[in-house]
């Protein structure tokens, strides 16, 4: 089974991203949306948590949500894929289960 985990909370305020990473297994994908996109930024207190997990888990971030919050693509952690709404749909279809970490 392959899971897609979506996270829509800021990792600097809630532990949703941390918990999703802890419960994701090799080959899973994590997609950051809404306030979850702050988890994709370089140089934050929580960036290390993401870079440490990148070997086993693939990370995606919603581009329109980055733009809304004024986060330049240059500030995104290397290796995180920036996608749009169509990419979201594709990700959902590519995985057996989608789990939302609210």
């Amino acid at each position: 089974m392959s899971q897609l985990h979506t996270v829509n909370k800021s990792p600097l305020e809630r532990i949703a991203l941390e918990s999703a990473i802890k419960h994701a297994v090799k080959g899973n994908a994590i997609l950051m949306i809404e306030d979850g996109v702050y988890g994709a930024m370089q140089g934050t207190q929580k960036s290390g948590m993401v870079t440490d997990a990148m070997g086993d888990i693939s990370f995606y971030v919603m581009g329109p949500d980055l733009k809304a919050r004024g986060i330049d693509e240059a500030r995104i952690i290397d290796g995180i894929n920036i996608i749009d709404y169509n990419g979201f749909v594709t990700l959902v279809t590519e995985h057996d289960v989608t789990q939302s970490w609210l």
Partner: peptide
């Protein structure tokens, strides 16, 4: 403070998310 500092960031553009950019 905390995530509130994100309210003041430059370059916000909400065109694609269908919300009003109030920055």
């Amino acid at each position: 403070l905390d995530d509130g500092v994100f309210q003041l960031t430059k370059g916000q553009d909400t065109g694609e998310v269908g919300m009003k950019n109030f920055s």
